[in-house]
């Protein structure tokens, strides 16, 4: 009765064959085929060529800037994301629901809008930029601006991965630690943070992956000065505009490799967390 492909557990529910076939077809057409085309192009370039293109000073500088500012922004977001998740889960205060909703703003706000808004804010004449200028600091059109844009983009990833885990954390664990004599800070450090670690790492990796590829919110504030504040995704666009398809493909292949590595890392973290903590 039920269509039973050899790899599916029999079920009385209908529609598996239809939906899985459609899912795989759509996935192939929209995602796998185009990415396959990129990988195909990259492989026809060969590793040597890719490395040679990547080791070009300007490309290397762009990749390094993207990588380092993304790491820094994700790392910066960890303590603040944790703090915000903690405050939203544990405390009730006026406006809590509003602030909870606003966390997703970087998800919902178009990147170009965020980009021009951040630029207006941090530019030397902007609200924050003018204050920074008094202290002799330049934010917009420097790597600091890139970093701040990536902080904006990455924040929700940390908060939204930590928040549900923190919410489900059994208060009994903290009570148990207290009955055993642990003070509050000790309890939080030794009993609350360890179970949150997989979520924190996952959030960090997601924020990093997003930041490395981010384009719209960064290019306005970056100023895009070669060797200084030019990010890797922009380099792809520039190479495309110069009809340098090989160059664009090489940079994209490297970025795709970073994406895949990050995805793999996230899956490893989660598999380890499941194996370790199980269900107690």
């Amino acid at each position: 009765m039920t269509p039973t492909a050899p790899f599916v557990k029999p079920s009385v529910l209908p529609g598996f064959r239809l939906t899985i076939a459609f899912t795989l077809l759509y996935l192939t057409l929209i995602v796998l085929l185009p990415i396959g085309a990129l990988l195909f192009r990259a492989s026809s370039l060969g590793v040597h060529e890719i490395v040679a293109l990547a080791l070009d000073g300007r490309t290397l500088a762009a990749l390094r800037l993207s990588f380092m500012t993304s790491l820094a922004a994700a790392a910066f977001n960890v303590p603040f994301g944790l703090l915000i998740a903690w405050v939203l889960v544990r405390y009730d205060f006026p406006g809590r629901r509003f602030f909870d909703a606003i966390i997703d703003l970087p998800f919902a706000l178009p990147t170009a809008v965020a980009g021009i808004a951040l630029t207006a804010l941090y530019a030397p004449k902007g609200w924050i930029g003018s204050i920074a200028a008094l202290a002799g600091l330049k934010i917009a059109f420097t790597p600091v601006g890139v970093f701040l844009a990536l902080v904006f983009v990455g924040l929700p990833f940390i908060v939204r991965t930590v928040q549900p885990v923190l919410g489900e954390l059994d208060r009994e664990l903290e009570e148990a630690a207290a009955t055993l004599g642990a003070g509050r800070l000790r309890t939080v450090a030794s009993v609350v943070l360890p179970p949150l670690t997989p979520a924190i790492l996952t959030g960090f990796a997601l924020a990093f992956a997003r930041a490395v590829g981010e384009y719209g919110s960064v290019i306005f504030i970056a100023g895009n000065i070669p060797y200084v504040s030019e990010i890797a995704p922009l380099l792809i666009v520039i190479k495309l505009e110069e009809f340098d398809y090989a160059g664009a493909t090489a940079v994209a292949a490297i970025m795709l490799a970073i994406s895949f590595a990050t995805l793999l890392l996230i899956n490893l973290i989660q598999a380890r967390a499941r194996a370790r903590y199980g269900h107690v």
């Binding site: 059994d170 009994e172 664990l173 009570e175 009955t179 004599g181 030794s190 107690v280």
Partner: peptide, 21 residues
Amino acid sequence: KSVQERQIGFVFQHYALFKHL
């Protein structure tokens, strides 16, 4: 006295064992 100072031993219904330890 706070719970830390009372020197009691408490066994929780769902044990509350620390899974990461």
